[in-house]
Amino acid sequence: MFRNQYDQDVTTWSPQGRIFQIEYAMEAVKQGSAAVGLKSGEHAVLATIKRAPSDLSSYQRKIFKIDDHMGIAISGLTADGRILCRYMRNECLNHRFVYDSPMPLGRLVRQVADKAQLGTQRSWKRPYGVGLIVAGHDESGPHIFYNCPSGNYYDYKAFAMGARSQAAKTYLERQFETFAAASLDDLVKHALHALQASLQDGELTEKNCSVAVVGGDMPFTLLEDDSLAPYIAAIKEEEPAAAAGMEAEGAAAEGDAAAGEGGAAGEGEQQQEQQGGGGGDDGGEAPMEQ
């Protein structure tokens, strides 16, 4: 009855040198709603789509402030995300206490990744089922990092994760070269456009999405509801123009994304050998980066 006897335990290598439990944990990230992160030369921006489990409930928070100079967007198991969030907040506070200065992002992200690695090598643990996009600003400028359940981390110019994020990724890949010089407002709009792409036919409102910005001249700030409304309105106005440009390739991209979820190869996964038709990877992050 077992399709695969090597996928039961995180401490079991498959004969091909893969660890399925880690790859399954990475699937959890795709169950969460989409989140994107991008940066210019001055600022970093996070944007997420929020879900509400029922009409009577509030929307689940996806963006968490870590410190004045950074925050995270999570996708996957929210509870796991909150553990990592608490850990990061703690590290930042300790750093401020000891050194009286904000913690460099790269260092914290590496620590989080090392922490995640532990869960991939012990039979009595499991990998975290959450992806983090860390956005922040330190001495070396703005940063977008992606922390993966596998214990890998990546330094990105722009990134998207979560459900149907391939469409957002496609948008970002087409636009990211213009981000370096973009203004903060433009950056936020790009983020919303990317989200809109991954929302397919759903409508982006100030209720179902939230945005956060951070830069050298401003602390990490969450934009929600009223403060977000003008941006939503602005991209709605741009939409017809932008949509026209998106349509042709956008349709292809979305088809791609749909196919990716159906189990066929997405863009990034050609790098990993396929075994037994393992679940589709939505591109970008090769499972274990071998």
Binding site: Y154, D155, Y156, K157, A158, F159, Q271, G283
Partner: peptide
């Protein structure tokens, strides 16, 4: 290179 949006010297 797993993505063109990666920063140089990532990974």
């Amino acid at each position: 290179i797993i993505s063109k949006m990666l920063e140089q010297h990532s990974n």
